[in-house]
Amino acid sequence: MIGSINPVRVLTMMMLATLCACAASTVEVRGSYPSPTIQRIPLTLGVYYSDALRNYTYTERSQTGDDEYYVESGQTHMELFNTVLPAMFENVVLLDDPAQADAMGVDAIFTPSIDEFQLGMPQKTRLEAYEVWVKYNMRLTGPDGSYIADWVMTAYGNATVGGLSTAESGINDAAVAALRDLASNFSISFTAVPDVRDWLARRT
């Protein structure tokens, strides 16, 4: 019986198993976001997603400094803004390049970016929850690139540790909760940002 086992195969399998155990997991954040029930602003907004936002990946490291999780949230951030902004503005135009803005006849260009992303894992925080904090920089410029407003927003979300749920699903749920928090705060507070308020007073 023992003679039939190929030692090379066993060694290869053991090495693969060891490699799999050490490899970092990738969490591609996926969620759905409701459209806000708010009054639309009668303007055309151009939206520019930079490559930094499109490909945003946060790396969570273990206590020994090894990569533990890669949290990819660029795609879901774009889905979030693509849901929220059309409910806030009469027209929304996606721009591949901010230089297209004038030709597209937009009133302003909105450029969101992620400044900071933090992840709280239960084994590190000793809490029964996965937590996500995100700090954003929101920038609103004229079609010619002139300054309109620039402000910081923060978002927080958590997900309770479930009996059978995995760390990946916990991270995903906490990130989706944080993005939902961003969407609610952004859609309500947008017109209250002083520079935005002044600009809207001039335009509408």
Partner: peptide
């Protein structure tokens, strides 16, 4: 909560 988003979220 979804139908009345964003008015009944934890922060709002």
């Amino acid at each position: 909560v979804d139908a009345l988003f964003p008015w009944f979220e934890p922060r709002t």
